[in-house]
Design a protein around this nucleic acid. Structure first.
Lengths: 335, 335
DNA sequence: CGGTATCAGGAAAGCGCTTACCTCAGGCAA
DNA sequence: TTGCCTGAGGTAAGCGCTTTCCTGATACCG
């Protein structure tokens, strides 16, 4: 492995000069030496050791991102936004999949801390139980104490800059949409009860139910296509009066569609997040749109641009919007 | 930022002892000191500086992955496999999105090289033109010269361990399936012509066309849903005799379905890759399955376990398989 | 009791860089 | 000519760790 010293030796200069030339330092150097050094770099295929640079420069340039799973379209969209901003400011993004295991989250926070990242963006949902979050909070504080920045997406225990999707409002929009269509018996297929995302979306749905004077049948399952399928199947089996289903994300909604095809019963379904696939399933999915990519962008901006000192954390909310498609219709209308 | 020296000072020991205790070295240490050091670690919330460790230990523990875009389901699946194996062997995975820009690929290879990763897995398709690949090859050689390992997925110019999806065979299966159903005028919506993936799948399709004595209408576009939609629209408009469409990946196939809905004409469609969504669109998509996750696993295994020295690169092929669903039917049968 | 093996712990030499500071020449004004 | 800048380059001190080698103390042997 060629080192700076090798390059310097080959070019017949000191490592200081070589370093300055390679990094384009402002210190003036004669063209003669510059050429010799660059030639040596090329001949030796020299690539600087990033770790040595980090150590010597003591600046942080990478950023870390904690997501449940990048291959989940929800996080894929968010990550796209995060990366766009990070890359635009010349930073390497390290993506970590936590798979919603609190253990792994802790590990990754420490790992990113150890790697001296400039900032960490936590994109996964928070947990309701503060037990699970306390330890996480500690680690984050330790990270921040060393000058690291943290931004979270969604409701978390940790007090830092945050971008909050309007989950409650979105739930309210979803419920209201169904009730306006005349549905009175609505089933909800929800994600894990422990997540704040689930809780908030559900709360919005409950609020609309109260407003319209109806009640909800809630079944919890995984935030996945298969989770949605299973939850829908059980709902269909247990309560024949349900005429509409609100899914707390689009993956579950897609599963609901599959369960209904299997059962030969077709109820109105509304999803949540408005994933790209929503318009391509049949019927195309009515959903609550969250601008996920820009949400990611915003979170990374907050993370990279610290607020003035001694200011409270900044909290921004991004709005939810109803996107009507073909999967919801008036209750009177048979399909 | 607490350093090892701070911990050592606080515990009243040398940094050597502190380091040994923290890393669980085999060197014996009295319980007394051990307790003091661990207490200091906890009080100071000490997290070792990973860069300093890398430098001092001179071992490589992270691995890098180059993909076109993790949020593309094709790469998301592969990445899942790559990560599973990397994580199982205790390695951090650094995912880099190249967005198919050769420039960015070069940059990332160097960046990963600089970060002293143990291995790089290149998961994106290769390019047909060797111009584009020559420079890449150089950088890879430079990386390998320093002891780094490389494995590629798909056909690339670089001579390293490789996992090859059976693209040609899959193309042949797809074409044969359509011709067996009696189609004689088949349109192909293909990805960018510069990619080896496109070329290979197309070659298989051509082989089947020759075998059955038919010809193909090929339209190139992006490997995306919208690319597929556009290509299909133009195919539909330009050649009314086409009765079946072969898409070179599932995203394009989904776009084809959309274009057909828009045009009110429903032709048989076969996809490629068998993404999870294939079974959830309507009609459910006949596709060529590639075991993407295990393909990723295999590639990472090759990358992490070097072959015996002076052996030719290992090349493994993973088979393609036809998955019949509802989007293809005999030509005689009207829909 | 001297000599040696054993053991816990520390001193210090790097790992590959960056950069503050120093040196040495040459150029200028007085 | 002397004195002093200025510019080009080198010297060397770290950055935060790991690890080799060394030290000093204790235990054990004949």
């Amino acid at each position: 492995m060629a080192t700076l010293a090798d390059v310097a030796r080959r070019a017949g200069v000191s490592t200081a000069t070589a370093s300055r030339i390679i990094n384009g330092s402002s210190k003036p150097v004669t063209d003669e030496l510059r050429a010799r050094v660059l030639a040596a770099v090329a001949e030796l295929r020299y690539v600087p050791n990033a770790h040595a640079q980090m150590l010597a420069r003591n600046n942080r340039n990478a950023v870390g991102v904690l997501v449940h799973d990048v291959s989940d379209p929800y996080f894929a969209e968010i990550t796209r936004g995060l990366q766009r901003v990070a890359t635009a400011s010349g930073r390497l993004t390290i993506i970590c999949n936590t798979f919603r295991e609190p253990e792994r989250e802790l590990e990754y926070i420490d790992l990113l801390h150890a790697h001296q990242v400039a900032a960490i963006v936590v994109a996964g949902s928070g947990y309701l139980s503060s037990d699970a979050e306390t330890e996480l909070d500690e680690r984050m504080l330790a990270f921040e104490a060393t000058g690291g920045r943290i931004a979270v997406i969604g409701r978390h225990h940790h007090a830092s800059d945050a971008v909050l999707p309007a989950n409650e409002e979105g739930g309210y929009l979803a419920g209201s949409h169904l009730f306006e269509l005349g549905h009175t018996s609505v089933g909800v297929i929800a994600g894990p009860a422990a997540l704040t995302t689930t809780a908030d979306r559900l709360a919005g749905l409950q609020r609309s139910a109260s407003a319209y004077g109806h009640s909800l049948q809630v079944v919890h399952s995984d935030f996945t296509r298969d989770g949605g399928e299973a939850a829908t199947a059980s709902l269909l089996a247990s309560d024949p009066s349900v005429t509409a289903i609100a899914a707390l994300n689009d993956s579950m909604a897609v599963g609901a569609l599959a369960a209904m095809r299997a059962a030969g019963r077709f109820l109105s379904v509304i999803g949540f997040d408005d994933m790209p696939i929503a318009r391509d399933v049949t019927p195309s999915l009515t959903s609550i749109r969250l601008p996920l990519t820009s949400l990611g962008e915003r979170a990374m901006e907050l993370a990279l641009n610290p607020p003035p000192p001694n200011t409270p954390p900044r909290v921004e909310t991004v709005p939810a919007e109803l996107i009507r498609r073909d999967s919801t219709w008036p209750v009177a209308q048979r399909r």
